[in-house]
């Protein structure tokens, strides 16, 4: 028996919006730790890892580990039927082939439930070891989103370089080229407005902008994004989900032939 009650239902709505364009079908794993997902995009260039810890739910019952295969577009459609202030409860029976999403409005005078058939998906779970990154940059998520959007009107790929000077995003296209540098800036009114650069070694990598733009769909989940870079590893863009966990996007670089 699985029963997860999330008071801040809008979080789940935002999580689905953040993933549904990148990943079509995915297995949600439920265990004592929490509600999690790991999935790749269809071309296996990007990977998303989600964790919503059990402590973040008002009620969390998961009698045994359960994997539920779902089409994220369909889940997103169902969650669009929930109001932003609704409480969302996810229910499933052990060994069953359906999941139920229940929505309660704040006044508790409207209760909706939607039952969805689960899918049997081949799960390809990758082991992601802890790594030391050459550079870790925390910046306002809206700023990162703006940069990716602006640069994609000029080019298809971006070179992200971190030096002592800051983090530089560069692109080139038919009309010309563009460089945006964000310097470390900790003299801000609120900590979430800061740009903080931790650099052990300078790093410069090339990425496809369309994936980065897709990651920025998670912007509403967190005011900051943490970008980790190493020359031998995929980029990680992490959006922390307050009191609950995270959504992390991994992106393999483009390498000179």
């Amino acid at each position: 028996m699985l029963e997860l009650r999330l008071v801040q239902g809008s979080l789940l709505k935002k999580v689905l919006e953040a993933m549904k364009d990148l990943v079509t079908d995915a297995n949600f794993d439920c265990s004592a730790t929490g509600f999690s997902l790991q999935a790749m995009d269809s071309s296996h260039v990007a990977l998303v890892a989600l964790l919503l810890r059990s402590e973040g739910f008002e009620h969390y019952r998961c009698d045994r580990n359960i994997t539920m295969g779902m089409n994220l577009n369909n889940v997103s459609k169902l969650l669009k039927c929930a109001g932003n202030d609704d409480i969302i409860t996810i229910k499933a029976d052990d060994g069953g082939d359906t999941v139920t999403f229940m929505f309660e409005n704040p006044k508790q005078d409207k209760i909706s439930d939607f039952e969805m058939k689960l899918m049997d998906l081949d799960s390809e779970h990758l082991g992601i070891p802890d790594a030391e990154y050459h550079a870790i940059v925390r910046m306002p998520s809206l700023e990162f989103s703006r940069i990716c959007k602006d640069l994609s009107s000029i080019g298809d790929t971006v070179v992200i370089s971190v030096t002592k000077e800051g983090i530089k995003f560069s692109t080139r296209g038919d009309i010309g080229n563009a460089n945006i540098v964000c310097r470390q800036n900790t003299t801000v009114d609120k900590p979430e407005e800061a740009t903080v650069i931790q650099m052990n070694e300078a790093v410069s990598l090339t990425f496809a902008l369309r994936y980065l733009n897709s990651f920025t769909k998670a912007t509403s989940l967190s005011e900051t994004v943490t970008i980790s870079l190493s020359s031998e590893l995929p980029l990680v863009a992490e959006y922390k989900i307050a009191d609950m966990g995270y959504i992390k996007f991994y992106l393999a670089p483009k390498i000179e032939d």
Partner: peptide, 14 residues
């Protein structure tokens, strides 16, 4: 000319 790497070239299946 740039080649797009895949995630599986960095992380292995478990």
């Amino acid at each position: 000319q740039c080649i797009q790497k895949r995630i599986s070239e960095y992380f292995s299946r478990v």
